[in-house]
């Protein structure tokens, strides 16, 4: 990976990945961000969007695979609380063929917080041999937290592999009881399960310093 770009609080940002370029982009708790990324031939994007602040946020990530053989990997995690509202949108456009995209967004919602995830995935008629996957998983820690998840797949090419999945649930009561039966107090067991839930995203962060920072910020919210 060559370049990195850390965007904290810009409103509108445009990025172009030139042919063959590999780039990591890290978003650390932006408040209001509309990010557009143009990918040229064979470029490789790895993006992490982390929301661990207490403010409301609106994050829109728009990726255009404009030339063949591009790879896009989007990871996101949010841990909301209080009366926080976080909206996350992804729009991934496969305009041409032989592209790959994957998305994994995981959210933990406490108190009265709200998260909406809108994931648009468009595979245009010329984008044969596209492989595109999208996953959104949400964990509700309180009865008054609310999540809205809207995966939106539009596929106009016939020779493609695409899938999406969204789940929303609570902490696994069986796992909690199992841990308590081994002597682990309930609050600690809950913390371990939450860390495990978000770790699936955290472990994909290549930059060790950023990864450690994200882990620390998650632990502060537990």
């Amino acid at each position: 990976m060559s370049e990195e770009l850390l965007i904290n609080n810009s409103e509108k940002v445009e990025v172009e990945l030139s042919a063959g370029e590999q780039r990591q982009i890290r978003l650390l708790s932006p408040r209001n961000l509309h990010l557009t990324i143009h990918q040229k031939q064979g470029s490789d994007l790895l993006l992490h969007a982390v929301s661990l602040a207490d403010e409301d946020a609106h994050i829109s990530i728009n990726v255009f695979q404009e030339e063949p053989d591009c790879t896009t990997a989007l990871y996101g995690l949010a841990f909301t609380r209080g009366k926080q509202v976080v909206n996350i949108e992804t729009h991934v456009f496969h305009n041409v063929g032989h592209g790959k995209s994957s998305q994994l967004f995981k959210n933990v919602l406490a108190d009265d917080s709200r998260v909406s995830f809108y994931g648009e995935l468009k595979v245009l008629p010329d984008a044969q041999k596209t492989e595109a996957f999208q996953t959104n998983r949400n964990l509700l820690l309180s009865r008054s937290a609310k999540v809205e998840t809207r995966p939106q797949l539009e596929i106009y090419a016939d020779d493609v592999k695409c899938s999406h999945g969204a789940t929303t649930g609570q902490l696994d009561a069986n796992a909690l009881f199992y841990m308590q039966q081994r002597g682990i107090p309930k609050e600690q067991a809950q913390r371990l399960l939450l860390q495990a839930f978000l770790e699936e995203v955290v472990q994909t962060i290549p930059d060790e310093k950023f990864q450690a920072d994200v882990r620390r910020q998650i632990n502060e919210r537990l």
Partner: peptide
Amino acid sequence: YPVEIPGV
């Protein structure tokens, strides 16, 4: 039925 706990 021992419980599976992914990630821990």
